[in-house]
Design a protein around this nucleic acid. Sequence first.
DNA 1: ATGCCGCCTTAAGATAATCTTAAGAAATTT
DNA 2: AAATTTCTTAAGATTATCTTAAGGCGGCAT
Lengths: 232, 232
Amino acid sequence: MAAGILVVDDEQSIADLIEVYLKNENYDVYKSYNGLDALKHVETQNIDLAILDVMLPDIDGFSICQKIREKHNFPVIMLTAKDEEIDKITGLTLGADDYVTKPFQPLELVARVKAQLRRYTRYNSSEISREEKLITIAGLVLNKDTHECTLNEKPLSLTPTEFSILWVLASNRGRVVSSEELFRKVWGDKYYTNSNNTVMVHIRHLREKMNDNAEHPKYIKTVWGVGYKIEK
Amino acid sequence: MAAGILVVDDEQSIADLIEVYLKNENYDVYKSYNGLDALKHVETQNIDLAILDVMLPDIDGFSICQKIREKHNFPVIMLTAKDEEIDKITGLTLGADDYVTKPFQPLELVARVKAQLRRYTRYNSSEISREEKLITIAGLVLNKDTHECTLNEKPLSLTPTEFSILWVLASNRGRVVSSEELFRKVWGDKYYTNSNNTVMVHIRHLREKMNDNAEHPKYIKTVWGVGYKIEK
DNA sequence: ATGCCGCCTTAAGATAATCTTAAGAAATTT
DNA sequence: AAATTTCTTAAGATTATCTTAAGGCGGCAT
């Protein structure tokens, strides 16, 4: 899986420029023009590295960096127009891993991104290895680590099987998953017996908790005679 | 233990200057004025970070960096007079973790050293070689060296297994740990037998000592059908 | 269009699994 | 031998899962 990179800069043109260069290297880019939006991305997307501008309309980059550090481990590269030494020290001390001053050469930034990621993955190497842990689909957030699930910020308390089913649907979003496949993925192949509607029952419970009605489902759609799916 | 830092520069005055600043921060400094000597240090001393000048009389800094990378994992900061973009990219691509151009501000260099070391120990902490020895989570402090544990300054007297369990939970904070995983990590894989509720019993004892009630636990939360977790 | 069949939804109760708690036995340490 | 720690067992509470069955709806054939 490609690494996810968060780019935060209030100057759209700069954020866009960085995005182009990063996408050219096949990274998944998440762009924000302000701090609040950025923090939301951090909680809902699989981020492996953040590039933060210091000057932002709402929260400054240093604070964002600190907030990230409370929960996350991935590298942070600070970006700023000021190049006074004192700022560099502040940034690095607050937990940033690198510091690039504007104006910068895009290729150098990309090189630094690679260096940080190489380091990051070197340490995390076999252990975590970039399995998807977070899935976000239109207000629905699933966290496999904590088994937490929120719908439009509100937590849903799901039972283990409910969570598993939703996870399978979400990780196959955009594709119809037959109830047989669902069953095999959630319970395991060996437990499968045909003519089993327990999947449907769980789907029903899920829809209830998600306030989704079967007639016009917002999330879990049923495809007659085939299975269920979640739109992309 | 203070971190060991290797400083390599053929200009003695510069190496000495860096040494002064690093010693001031209580690092163990190993100085070399040429590449061969530097590589000898790498093999014989406990090095946690290297600062390499690119221009050296015998071997160039990039080659030293590559040699280091064959066997070691610690961060490398390249140091050079050339500040053309292409060189930076070369350096970072060859496995360096940061790049500082001369003339540089000593304090900035120190800050970058700190940032790299922080990163290095952060990654090595939980999983790999270098062990995390102290974990602090919201009033709860665990010391692996002494097996001591305090909660809001007050010491808790935990039995060895209790400590181990709490340690596993704490070092995986923010993630649900299944009781099977807990068992395997505390007792070892080979002892695992299914249908074992001894973990739960110990959890119960822990909660008792921590004054945590199962209904609204402040520390050890149970995730039904999945496992236990401590919040980040 | 109409009616039928089969798939899907929904409800409710039965069954099963997991967790908490307690108490005492076994093992280990002091 | 005493004290501590660890493990086993089991009852009770809680929660999750499955089964069943009735009714609704979609698609298909006539």
